[in-house]
Design a protein around this nucleic acid. Structure first.
Lengths: 208, 208
DNA sequence: ATATAGTTTAACCAAATGGTTAACAAAAGT
DNA sequence: ACTTTTGTTAACCATTTGGTTAAACTATAT
């Protein structure tokens, strides 16, 4: 049995394929991506794709599902922790921005998948039992409202606002860059600022 | 010359094609959509698609570009009007929610296109000269900050927040519906509420 | 009626595309 | 050394898919 055939070059074929697939799937989507494009991008033969990853669907799944399965439970954990409301909001924003700065393709991929077949995708991510439970977070907001520590607001809308402000700029990145006349660096700097800006904005909006 | 061949049935073939194309393009995207799917959905022969709309690209463009070209200048007009800041925010939210409740496919389509080829898409929508100028809106925010009528906030982030909160729930609709355990009706009711909720949230966040 | 312009279809075609095969090259094991 | 396993390729195949063609059908005008 062979351990791993390390070339003199840095990357093994499998790694090159994964990186290339990530890039092509991200920019063209599952349907728009061509196996030939991925092979070219990786600088290898098309047949190798099938040697390592049986077919297009498998490759697609390997590329994205792994990351998604790691990430989403983290978010779930934040929502369900015993931390204070404002702290949860900060954690959520930070965790998400971390993830998206490292994997800019992820939110786009998730939206595509969830539009294509919500049930199957959700099942793959959360498994049979580990479903996302925004319940605790929503109740926590409700409680704070009743206690009078924050302004009256429908918990659902607060949650939507939080999620939207965090994720959307990444999804609409090309539009942001184009219309606000930014470059790549300015964009990621802006996203770094949002770690502070979003929680501040929300807290200003709801604290009494 | 014949006026228009109205069948005893309600819809003419052309209309059926447009409706079907809208549906299929929306759910599967440009690359994922099959001409055969559209023909089936419309209940007509594939060749008819090419009879009415030369090819796939043309059909795609006719379906969406028309609406986009009507809609975006409206938004631009709001940003560049002489209305007060808070009024602009309200107008923006209302105009957008109107549009997306009627054409739920639009934001998804726009994001897809803008990811595929930002420059060409923007050009098609705005034409050569009529570019989107967020400048005036951003300056207006800056001015209010300096006047001290609103809290100190980076105009770009305020704009991002506004856009994100308005659009994202529609883009991520299947996820919202699934994770917040809603049905179609509840979703559109929630979006109606957001006409008030979003401006209120923003104003609470920035007014002194 | 029948000629005409517009509409619809079945059958085809060529190109693109996902996937396979068989042969070859490089390591690893013996 | 040489056999076996793993990695890689060019050539090929089968299917899908966008698009075409020619014929048939329908409504209207003359």
């Amino acid at each position: 049995m062979v351990k791993k055939q390390k070339k003199i070059e840095d990357k093994t074929a499998e790694e090159k394929i994964l990186a290339a697939a990530k890039k092509v799937f991200t920019t063209k989507g599952m349907a728009g991506a061509r196996m030939q494009d991925i092979a070219d991008e990786a600088g290898i033969n098309k047949a190798l794709l099938h040697y390592y990853f049986r077919d297009k669907d498998k490759l697609f799944e390997v590329v994205f599902m792994e990351e998604a399965q790691k990430f989403f439970p983290k978010i779930n954990a934040i929502f369900n922790s015993d931390a204070a409301l404002f702290e949860k909001i900060e954690n959520f924003v930070n965790e998400y921005i971390d993830e998206m700065l490292e994997n800019p393709y992820l939110p786009w991929f998730v939206l595509n998948e969830v539009n294509r077949d919500p049930d199957q995708f959700m099942y793959k991510i959360w498994g049979k039992d580990n479903l996302p439970k925004p319940g605790k977070f929503l109740e926590q907001i409700e409680k704070e409202v009743k206690k009078g520590t924050i302004k009256k607001i429908h918990p659902m809308h607060l949650l939507m606002n939080l999620i939207s402000m965090t994720i959307f700029p990444f999804v609409a990145k090309p539009m942001m860059i184009r219309n606000l006349r930014m470059n790549e660096l300015q964009f990621s700097q802006a996203m770094q600022q949002r770690r502070m800006e979003i929680p501040k904005f929300i807290i200003d909006a709801i604290k009494k």
